[in-house]
C-alpha cells in the first residue's frame, strides 16, 4: 500500500544521505522524497512516499526512528491528511488549435500557464499525485517536451501535527 511518511530531522549535513542510504541498503521503495528546512532552521522536514506491506512499513518507520538524526515521524496515511505536489509541464503550443486545447485542460485542472513562447507553453499545476497523473493523461493529445514534479509534500488535517 502507498504511504506518506513525514519525518522531522536535525538539519545536519548528511542527514538526507542517511535516510536515502537506509532505503537502498534495506531494499525499501522510494516513490518520492522531498526535504527542506522548517520554520525552525535547526530542523528539516522530509516527506517520503513509499509502499510495502504493513510489516515492511512498520520496519521502515522503526528503522527511520532509529537514525540518530531523526527527531520524530508520522505516517500521514494513517489519518486524514492533505497531499500536494507541484508539477511543471512544458508542451508544444505552436498553433491556435494546440493553444486552445492546452488552455482548456489547464482550466479544468485549475493550473496556470506561467510561460509562453512562440512554440511552447509552460504549465504549472498543484494537487495530489493522482491529480497530477490524471493531468498528464489528459495531455496525451499534446506533445509534451518536459515534465518536472516536485514530489509529494503532506500535512495532517485539523489538529494533527508533527512538531518537535
Amino acid at each position: 500500500m502507498r504511504r506518506i511518511i513525514s519525518v522531522l530531522l536535525e538539519n545536519e549535513a548528511g542527514a538526507l544521505s542517511r535516510v536515502a542510504g537506509l532505503f537502498s541498503a534495506r531494499g525499501y521503495n522510494i516513490e518520492s522524497l522531498t526535504v527542506a528546512p522548517t520554520d525552525d532552521p535547526s530542523l528539516s522536514r522530509m516527506t517520503i512516499v513509499t509502499s510495502g506491506t504493513d510489516a515492511i512499513i512498520e520496519q521502515i518507520t522503526k528503522q527511520l526512528n532509529k537514525l540518530v538524526d531523526v527527531v520524530k515521524l508520522i505516517d500521514l496515511t494513517e489519518g486524514k491528511h492533505i497531499e500536494r505536489e507541484l508539477m511543471l509541464v512544458k508542451v508544444t503550443a505552436s498553433n491556435n488549435e494546440q493553444r486552445e486545447e492546452v488552455a482548456r485542460l489547464i482550466g479544468i485542472f485549475r493550473g496556470r500557464i506561467i510561460d509562453v513562447t512562440e512554440l511552447t507553453y509552460t504549465l504549472e499545476m498543484t494537487g495530489s499525485t493522482s491529480k497530477a497523473d490524471a493531468f498528464l493523461d489528459a495531455l496525451s493529445q499534446v506533445e509534451i517536451i518536459e515534465v518536472v514534479r516536485s514530489g509529494v509534500s503532506g500535512i495532517g488535517r485539523g489538529k494533527r501535527a508533527l512538531k518537535a
Binding site: 549535513a13 548528511g14 544521505s17 542517511r18 542510504g21 541498503a25
Partner: peptide
C-alpha cells in the same frame, strides 16, 4: 569517511 562508514555505524560525525 562519513559516507563509507555510514551503513555500518550507529552514527558518525565530521
Amino acid at each position: 569517511t562519513v559516507g563509507i562508514t555510514c551503513p555500518c555505524v550507529k552514527h558518525n560525525f565530521l
